[in-house]
Simulated assay, not measured.
Amino acid sequence: MPTSSTSPWGPVQWATNGPVNIAFDRLTEGADGEPLLLATGLGANRRWIPDELCRMLAARGFAVARYDQRDGGDSTHLPATSTTNPIAALFGRRGSAYTAEDMVDDTVAVLDALGWESAHLLGVSLGGAVVQRTALRHPERVRTLTTMAAVPGDSAGLRSMRYVRLRTLSKFAGLKFPDTPEGDVRAGVEVFRLLASPARPFDERAAREAALRNKDSGLHDQEAQSRQIGAQWHGAPIEKVTRPTLVLHGADDPLIKPSAARTIASRIPGSRLVLLPEVGHELPEHSWSLVADELGRLVDAEREKRAA
Rank of each mutant, 00 (worst) to 15 (best):
Q69D: 11
H249F: 03
L290A: 07
T76Y: 01
P277S: 04
T245M: 09
V104S: 05
G127D: 10
F91G: 10
I229L: 10
T146V: 07
Q225I: 08
D68Q: 03
P152F: 10
P277Y: 09
G30N: 14
D300L: 08
R94G: 06
G43F: 11
L121F: 05
H249W: 10
L38T: 04
G127K: 08
G153P: 02
T84H: 12
I256V: 14
V20M: 15
R162V: 14
S125Y: 03
S75I: 04
V191Y: 02
T76R: 09
T107R: 06
R159S: 15
S7G: 03
T16W: 14
P86A: 08
L126S: 05
I256Y: 07
V124F: 11
N45F: 04
V124T: 10
R243N: 01
P181C: 09
E29T: 15
A260F: 13
F62I: 13
G157D: 13
C54I: 01
K215M: 07
L273M: 05
L145D: 06
V142Y: 06
A63K: 05
V124G: 06
N17A: 00
E302M: 08
G153L: 01
L166S: 15
D112S: 03
A231D: 05
R297S: 08
A173G: 06
A231F: 00
N17P: 12
K176T: 10
M1T: 14
I268M: 11
S266F: 00
D221E: 06
D25K: 00
V12P: 10
D51M: 02
T16A: 15
G95E: 08
W116F: 12
T168E: 04
I49L: 07
K240D: 10
G92T: 00
G43V: 12
I268F: 10
L158I: 01
N45T: 01
A224P: 11
T144M: 05
L295W: 03
S75N: 05
L126I: 06
N21M: 10
L53T: 06
L38N: 00
P277W: 11
T76P: 03
A23C: 07
V291C: 09
S226P: 09
T16Y: 15
F24M: 04
P152M: 08
T263C: 08
G92A: 00
W14H: 08
W116I: 10
R66P: 09
V291M: 13
P139I: 03
E285L: 09
S7Y: 04
W233F: 13
T263M: 04
T83W: 03
D25S: 00
A292E: 00
E209L: 14
T84E: 13
H120L: 00
P181A: 03
Q222N: 15
T6N: 09
G280Y: 02
E52I: 14
L136A: 01
G235H: 10
R193G: 09
L37V: 13
A39I: 15
R272F: 00
A187K: 02
D102W: 06
H77G: 11
A80F: 01
A58T: 01
V124R: 07
R165N: 15
G95C: 06
V64H: 02
G95T: 12
W48I: 14
W288R: 14
P244D: 00
K176P: 00
H138Y: 04
Q13Y: 07
G41L: 02
E223H: 12
L145N: 05
